[in-house]
Design a protein around this nucleic acid. Structure first.
Lengths: 230, 230
DNA sequence: CAGTGGTCTAGACCACTGT
DNA sequence: CAGTGGTCTAGACCACTGC
C-alpha cells in the first residue's frame, strides 16, 4: 500500500518536518541527492516533492532549491473538526494546556441562551498549540445535561471537541466569525494583538449544548472553505 | 508558460467538464487514447489526469476507467452571495462607489496563480455601503477571458458578483478568512483599524477566474454560518 | 560555470476489472 | 483475455539561480 517509493520519500520528508528535524526555511536535500539516498529515479523523487509542495509543506524555487515552508495554520468553518485532528493531519504536534475546568454559576444572559432555570454550567479554558506555537484559545461553556462527566475529563489528553462529539450528538451548529482586538489576558497566550474570534453554538436534544469562543491569532491563522456551487 | 502539454491536456478536460461537453458520470478517454490524441507519452497524460483527480474533477477507478465526478454540492451555508441582495434582505439600502476599474499588468505572482503567460488582468476596487455605512471594501482581479466586457460595466448599478455570476459559471470557490490590521488606504474607507479579510478565489473552466479580497470592518461585521452536521 | 527544479519520453511491470 | 489505471526507470532538454 504505502510502500511505493514516492510515498516513502514523501513521508520521510513530511516526518522530518513534523519532528522538526527539518526546520522552517531550511533547505532540503536536492532531487539528485534524494535519488542517491533512496536509490530511485528522479521522476520518483520529483513526484514526492511536487506533492509536498502542493500540500504547502515545502516551497520549491527553481534554480535554488526546496525549503521547508513556514507553517500556515488552516481550519474549516463548515465542519465541526477536532483541532487535534487538524493539526495531526498537517503532520504537526498538538498540545493543550488546561487553565480552567470548573462548574460556574451562569449569569442571567447565559441562563437565557442555555434555557436553564437554575443549576451550574461547566466552564473550560484551554490553550491549544501546534508544534508548541499557540494556535487557539478555547473558552467553552457546556450545559451539564449533555455531558455530566465533563469536569472529570483530562483535556490535555483529549480535546473537549473530541469528548463532546462522542457523548453528545450535535444537531445544529452556528458559527459566527469576527475580527477583534485580542482581549487582554488572552493576548498573553496567543501573542497577537489581533484575533479571529469564532463563536460557536451547538444544539443537542433541542437545547443549546455548548457556547464556545475560539480565539485564533489573526496573523498566523486562516479559515478556509472550498466548495462547489450548485 | 501555460503551454506545457500536461497543462493543455488538463485544461482541455477541465473545459470539457465546465462546458458540460462531458457530463457527470460519463467515461473520459483512456490514457492511451489521450496519448494518441495529444501525441504525448503516457506519463504526461497520467500527470494531467492524476491532478484532475486530486482536484475532484474526475474519479479514477483502476481497471475500469476515468469518469467525470458528480459535483458534490455542499451546504448552502457557504454561499456565493451578492452583497446587494444580502443588504436588501435586511431591508436596508445598498450603495456602491467605484474607485478603480481598469486593466492592469499582473505581476509575476498574479501571473502564476491565474496561469496566464501574458496580457492584462482586470482590476476593480469598490466600496459597498449599507444605509451609507461602509460595510465592505472589495478589491477584485478578474481574468479577461472569463469576462471580456468587465471594464464596460457600471458597478455602481450592478455589483461585480452579480455580473460575474451571470457571465461566468463558477466551478469552484475557495474562501480564506483571516483577521488583520486594516491596510492604510482601506482603513480610510472602512473606518476601522481591524478588519476581517476574506480572500475569495473562484475557478471557471478549470482556470482561476477571479481573486477577490473582501475587507469588512472588524467591529461592525460578522460572518455567520448555520449548519447541521452529517 | 555547475547546480537547481520543471518537464518530457518511450519504454516497462503490476494489480485490477469486465467479459 | 484485453484493457484500465498506478507506478517506476534512465535517460533527456530547458530556464533559472548563484557564484
Amino acid at each position: 500500500m504505502s510502500e511505493s517509493p514516492y510515498l516513502l520519500i514523501k513521508r520521510s520528508i513530511a516526518d522530518g518536518i513534523a519532528t522538526r528535524r527539518y526546520l522552517p526555511g531550511q533547505v532540503l536535500p536536492s532531487e539528485p541527492a534524494l535519488c542517491r539516498t533512496f536509490g530511485v529515479a528522479r521522476m520518483t523523487v520529483n513526484r514526492a516533492m511536487r506533492e509536498l509542495a502542493a500540500e504547502q509543506l515545502v516551497r520549491r524555487v527553481p534554480g535554488v532549491g526546496t525549503f521547508v515552508a513556514e507553517p500556515v495554520a488552516e481550519s474549516s468553518l463548515v465542519e465541526l473538526r477536532n483541532i487535534a485532528d487538524e493539526i495531526a493531519e498537517r503532520g504537526h504536534r498538538h498540545s493543550a494546556t488546561v487553565f480552567v475546568l470548573a462548574a460556574v454559576t451562569p449569569d442571567d444572559e447565559q441562563r437565557a441562551i442555555f434555557g436553564i432555570a437554575e443549576g451550574p454550567l461547566f466552564h473550560s479554558a484551554i490553550l491549544h498549540c501546534e508544534n508548541e506555537i499557540p494556535i487557539q484559545f478555547e473558552d467553552r461553556f457546556v450545559a451539564p445535561s449533555v455531558a455530566p462527566d465533563y469536569l472529570q475529563q483530562d483535556f490535555s489528553r483529549m480535546t473537549p471537541s473530541e469528548y463532546l462529539l462522542r457523548v453528545a450528538p450535535v444537531q445544529e451548529v452556528r458559527h459566527d466569525v469576527q475580527a477583534a482586538a485580542t482581549p487582554t489576558g488572552i493576548a498573553r497566550h496567543l501573542d497577537d494583538k489581533i484575533c479571529l474570534l469564532v463563536t460557536r453554538l451547538t444544539w443537542s436534544g433541542g437545547r443549546l449544548a455548548t457556547l464556545t469562543r475560539l480565539y485564533y491569532p489573526g496573523g498566523r491563522f486562516r479559515l478556509t472553505e472550498r466548495f462547489v456551487p450548485k
